[in-house]
Design a protein around this nucleic acid. Structure first.
Lengths: 340, 340
DNA sequence: AGAGTCTTCCAAAGCGCTTTGGCTTTTTTG
DNA sequence: CAAAAAAGCCAAAGCGCTTTGGAAGACTCT
């Protein structure tokens, strides 16, 4: 059942039927009702390929997925996707993942824009002066950055959490508890979120005339194993820290294991605070010692990004407004006063 | 730059240019070369929307993503996606995720097929007599099932691992080590993989004239917390098992925590084997006691599914061939002889 | 009543590609 | 050498929708 048939059946022109269905004003309300009625009764659904060719609108949002044998997709992605998908569903949007060589995403961005394959895109895990952001900005496709970039001479729309504030608060708590030697086990420090977190820690220390020992900050891919290794290294060297701030719950698993392996305890010897993106399958309160966290649901962020993308597609949102969400500091058993 | 312009510039008809580009035989090789040359030089890329309208081919594979506030996307998904994306990239395929109400995926399947939004789909986490499988089968769109369904009067193409065999082997090993009371902490037993795993355990026990105590088998969503709870319940009741087989590494984290909380040790008091889908961020050899596993890379499965989908789209693969991959049993420190 | 203004609808021209059917020109064949 | 076959190309008809530019009729106003 296509438009032509429907129009013929109603003894109307395709124009009128099309307009009736799409809510244009120049059609009699009575006629519109008849049309919509018939459309529903016959289960008419406009062919998206045709609509797409005619309008350029696709009803899809895009994401360029970096791939490659040695490229691991961040497990956070799936949670983000949950939120995104949940919102997208309610707005009849589909998500298209365009796999790209991790080292050449530009080609793919250009392709999906040139081919008008999607109405909008989002960018995640941005770095300072991220080329992807600059690119989509000049290409002129609606977009939202999940996270933040830095160092551009233009503004852009983003949704981010207050990473600096979160890690500042976490560090401040530890300092108040008497800790003087903090360590930071961070994610990839080429990404902005990690830079902000480190900044937060340093600022808190500086406020108490303390500093972050360069040997006490490390930047690694966020796996359990790397959390373990980093902790071993930190604790086995001289001037070991008494408190650790950690960028992910998965790494925190490794931290806990390392501390135990060394015959130390949390929080007796080591206080620990980690960032929690809120996974359903791994919860900080269920650590052997309930874990203090800076908490922010990445799923909600996904939903919010979808919402903003939809708004931009339909023209309801414009401009380069960035938004920064506050982060909760949730104190549980893994922190205590510094050992004497 | 569109076909019309290119044709005009070459003083050829659109027909000829189109045919030259698409490798049809009725065009002079010399002409073809000229055309391809010009196309490359001017960066001509056929508009996919137009091609799609004309041919019905989209260059995309589809996945219906169950969503909802209480629906959690399986964290395995992201690893599967890694493999899928990696292959898809090399074949210029995009992946479209169509979010659907978890309780009504049929509507979405019908929509993407009726609208010809994708060339093929894959289905994951199938259950016995899965309605989605029956549906796509009758809808006639090319598809691959990742995993297996059961109880149909038709065959269908799938790629699965030998879950029954894997858990049979794991159980057999434990039995050989003298264990008599095994427990199974399984995933959602409405899904086929869980049913097969249970079957494997039972078969191994039966071979030694043993049986799986109904109190020693449980089926839960695969989270750390559920692994913990299940283990507490198992070990605190009478006739506690001396060995546990567990369907996921994430649940195994909870198992280990519970065992420790109870003042027991692995493998001294409890032997443990878990299934490992091979995540980069959580490795069995890094458990406090290196974990024995049944191992099968879900990432490779993703790549294989993509490969088969591509083959089916291009007509290279037909029929309902199912393939079952063997699973490695990797023995590490978490198993030992049964306590006296 | 005639001019001007809405309201309501339509025919037809895209959107950019593929593909059918046919027309020349060249090559092959008996 | 004429007839048949093959090769190489083209015009035009889709694919199914949106949107432009009118046009006809109904209504308002002076």
């Amino acid at each position: 059942m296509n438009l032509k048939q429907l129009a013929h059946m109603l003894a109307l022109s395709q124009t009128t039927v099309s307009r009736a269905l799409n809510g244009y004003p120049e059609v009699n309300e009575e006629t519109r009702r008849r049309v919509m009625d018939a459309a529903k009764r016959h289960g008419y659904r406009p062919n998206p390929s045709a609509r797409r060719l005619a309008t350029g609108k696709t009803g899809m949002i895009g994401y360029v997925l970096p791939t490659g044998a040695s490229v691991d997709i961040d497990p956070h992605f799936v949670e983000f996707l949950s939120g995104l998908g949940d919102y997208a569903r309610s707005h009849e949007l589909d998500l298209v993942l365009s796999p790209a060589d991790a080292d050449d995403q530009e080609t793919t961005y250009r392709r999906i824009v040139a081919n008008r394959q999607v109405d909008a895109v989002y960018i995640s895990s941005p770095r300072p002066a991220d080329r992807r952001v600059a690119l989509v900005n000049t290409l002129g496709i609606p977009f939202i950055v999940h996270g933040r970039s830095e160092g551009f001479d233009f503004d852009y729309p983003f949704t981010d959490i207050d990473n600096e504030g979160a890690f500042h608060e976490a560090s401040r708590l530890l300092i108040q508890l008497g800790h003087r030697r903090l360590a930071l086990i961070n994610g990839d420090d080429r990404e902005t979120f990690a830079i902000h977190r480190e900044r937060g820690v340093r600022r808190a220390l500086a406020a108490s005339a303390l500093a972050l020992d360069e040997r006490h900050v490390c930047s690694v891919v966020m796996t359990e194993e790397n959390g373990y290794r980093a902790t071993r290294r930190l604790l086995e060297a001289g001037d070991a820290p008494t408190a650790i701030v950690c960028s992910s719950l998965i790494m925190a698993l490794g931290v806990v294991r390392a501390v135990r392996d060394l015959g130390l305890t949390i929080p007796g010897d080591i206080s620990l605070i980690a960032h929690d993106d809120v996974f359903p399958w791994l919860r900080p309160e269920n650590f052997s010692v309930p874990l203090s966290t800076t908490r922010s649901s990445i799923r909600l962020a996904g939903a919010r990004v979808a919402e903003r993308l939809a708004a931009r597609i339909s023209g309801l949102e414009e401009g380069a407004r960035g938004e920064v969400w506050p982060v909760d500091l949730v104190v549980r058993g893994s922190v205590a006063g510094a050992p004497a």
